[in-house]
Design a protein around this nucleic acid. Structure first.
Length: 305
DNA sequence: ACCAGTCAAGGAAGC
DNA sequence: GCTTCCTTGACTGGT
């Protein structure tokens, strides 16, 4: 069972290895030089924590890691717009990125990311599109700096977000997709969602894979909530067939039948004997993953005796 | 040390 | 055309 940790290790956080962030409100409330110093420290901290988490995954038989999408907070805010090179102690920032890169290579942990839920390539508002393009490009830059492959082996996963006419929305999406660099385009994949009625696996496949070869991420919980009558197995294989490498799918369970993620899993991810990496979206994070692995291995022992 | 309120984002729904 | 909700972790300011 190949599992991937989603952003935070609760185990390491309890030991004091925590991510930090900075809002624009905070950045702009102090002297610029003071804010830049603080931001530089935050970014170094975040890459260093990521490196520790990758090591932690490798030590615990967790094959994948979804990087946080807030490693470099506020730098691409419209009123800030800085490059990493503009920050104090850039050499130390670069060193923290190189350390993470080396650890990823050394451990063989497969890395992905899920840029903000608020990113949209389907908005009518070009300002919002531009913010989204900039945010995606920052992810591409970080992936490039980490020497991650420009392929779906290291995917950047987003949602379509907007509801409405699939034909029209997919046209808008592709028009904006073409504005992205190769760094992003070569990694971008799309995930099914349930917040409306449109973006099931089969519609994503029809409008984005069949026409543009963009792979589809299968999320079992979103599928449960919106499936247009398609079974779990059919949706799984529909999405599976869109990848040119082992897919990264999402696994979670809802709290009392809702879309709110539960703390721990009660069941196991179903992979139909296929090679899939499951990004586990459960609140107890690595505790939930270690529990799944333990139960899975116990079941393997029972069924092979 | 701890707690409650704040912050960030785009879209949808409800007045 | 407003406000509120959605989500979620860290930050912030008060005790």
């Amino acid at each position: 069972m190949n599992l991937s940790l989603c952003c935070i290790s609760n185990i390491l956080a309890e030991q004091g290895h925590k991510f930090r962030t900075m809002t624009y409100k905070s950045f702009s409330s102090k002297e610029r030089s003071e804010s830049l110093e603080k931001l530089s420290e935050i970014i170094i901290n975040n890459f260093t924590v990521s490196e520790k988490i990758v090591r932690h995954c490798a030590a615990n038989n967790i094959q994948g890691y979804r990087l946080s999408s807030d490693l470099t907070p506020v730098i691409k805010h419209p009123e800030v717009m800085l490059a990493l090179e503009d920050l104090p102690n850039y050499n130390l920032i670069n060193k923290s990125i190189e350390d993470l890169s080396h650890t990823i290579k050394e451990t063989g942990i497969r890395v992905s990311a899920h840029p903000s839920e608020y990113i949209t390539l389907t908005s009518d508002d070009d300002v919002k599109i531009k913010h989204s393009l900039i945010d995606l490009e920052m992810h591409g830059e970080i992936f490039d700096r980490l020497n991650l492959s420009r392929s779906y082996y290291n995917p950047l996963n987003i949602h379509i977000r907007k509801e409405g006419d699939a034909e029209e929305l997919s046209g808008t999406f592709i028009k904006n997709f073409e504005r992205l660099s190769e760094s992003v385009k070569s990694r971008l994949v799309l995930e099914n969602n349930d917040t409306g009625n449109t973006w099931t696996v089969s519609n994503l496949k029809k409008y984005f894979y069949n026409r543009h070869n963009i792979p589809i991420t299968f999320d079992n919980l979103h599928h449960e909530m919106l499936n247009h009558g398609t079974s779990h197995k059919d949706a799984f294989f529909d999405a599976f067939s869109t990848w040119n490498c082992a897919p990264i799918f999402h696994y979670s369970e809802g709290k009392n039948g809702t879309r709110a993620h539960s703390d721990m899993a009660e069941n196991l991810p179903v992979h139909y004997d296929k090679d899939v990496l499951f990004d586990v979206e459960l609140k107890n994070k690595d505790y939930a993953i270690l529990d799944i692995l333990k139960r899975y291995n116990e079941r393997e022992i029972l069924t092979t005796v």
